[in-house]
């Protein structure tokens, strides 16, 4: 079994989307569309922090890690961008040292872009289940910088935020969030670049709804869970509009989709569904026995869904 035993999040201070208009390169019409239809309003940014700082700030709030460091066998960082730090610098190295996890194996999981977070949770549970030690844990981290022109937005889709998460994952049925099913599909014809243009962008737009619905239905099937059994959907926070289409297609009531952070944080790379988990738990939106769905879509292009029981 794979379970998320604990989750913490770090949301930096926000800035109004309008203040980023020139920086992101939005026209007045685009800005209004982002605000009125996409539901984007404030974006969280940590001006002075590096990627390593963001992840450390999330991990510092993971109180369940304290005193359990020796149980942590793996540190997995899920990352959208394949190359954000000058070689040979990494975030994983300093994180292991700062958190007292120098004994743990640490590495980055990527190339599912923003869907790499769900892959990292699955991978962590798989490695732990294959080991001898049922008490062992994995620390899974996600969160990235949006500090460059090329990484701060997906044109005509969303604006990136710098929220980060830290999670303890168990290979046992030991946590409050038990994974039941997972589906991921990479539509590799979109491999050529992160930011698509022209016909490729139109093709991706056409693929988006069926691609996302396909993995949702498949993950639910693996979990033995019906759509009507879902208490909550913890989505990727790209925008509100895209979820209206998914909900209409699958018959999911919009009120079941946790969209609180779309307008309060922006799209935080791989961290979105886990940020939503932490906030939904904090708000009491999940009760014992509730089944819920996480989703992510990564440019490149990977669609992923994962079903949990709380």
């Amino acid at each position: 079994m794979t379970s998320i035993a604990a989750v913490s999040s770090y949301l930096p201070d926000t800035v109004p989307l309008a203040s980023l208009q020139e920086q992101v390169g939005l026209s007045d019409v685009q800005l209004r569309r982002y605000q009125r239809f996409y539901g984007l309003a404030d974006v969280c940014r940590d001006e002075g922090g590096t990627e390593t700082d963001l992840l450390l700030r999330a991990a510092a709030k993971l109180t369940e890690l304290r005193g359990q460091e020796q149980r942590v066998k793996y540190v997995l960082q899920a990352r959208t961008m394949p190359s954000p730090l000058p070689y040979p610098l990494t975030s994983v190295g300093p994180l292991r040292e700062e958190l007292g996890l120098g004994h743990a194996a640490g590495f980055v999981v990527s190339h599912h872009a923003c869907a790499s977070g769900l892959l990292a949770v699955d991978m962590a549970g798989m490695l732990l289940a294959a080991d001898d030690d049922p008490d062992a844990l994995a620390l899974v981290l996600a969160g990235e910088k949006a500090c460059t022109y090329r990484t701060q937005s997906i044109p005509d889709v969303t604006v990136m935020g710098e929220g980060a998460v830290a999670m303890l994952v168990s290979g046992e049925d030991a946590g409050p969030n038990r994974m039941l099913g997972y589906a991921a599909r990479t539509h590799a014809r979109f491999h050529s670049d992160f930011i698509l243009g022209g016909d490729a962008a139109k093709d991706f737009q056409a693929q988006y709804l069926p691609g996302l619905c396909e993995v949702i239905v498949t993950a639910l099937d693996e979990a033995g869970c019906g759509l009507d059994e879902l208490a909550l959907v913890l989505p990727h926070n790209v925008n509100r509009l895209s979820w209206m289409g998914v909900c209409k297609q699958l018959g999911i009531p919009m009120e079941k989709v946790f969209l609180d952070l779309v307008g309060a944080a922006g799209h935080c790379f791989c961290a979105d569904p886990f940020l939503n988990l932490q906030h939904a738990q904090e708000l009491g939106r999940l009760r014992p026995g509730d089944r819920y769905l996480m989703t992510s879509v990564g440019l490149g292009a990977t669609f992923s869904a994962m079903v949990f029981e709380h």
């Binding site: 079994m1 794979t2 699955d122 549970g125 798989m126 289940a129 294959a130 049922p134 290979g171 046992e172 038990r178 994974m179 039941l180 099913g181 997972y182 589906a183 991921a184 599909r185 396909e214 993995v215 498949t218 993950a219 099937d221 693996e222 979990a223």
Partner: peptide, 10 residues
């Protein structure tokens, strides 16, 4: 498509 349930400890 990759699809799976949670891994089982053996």
């Amino acid at each position: 498509m990759f699809r799976t349930t949670a891994p089982v400890r053996r």
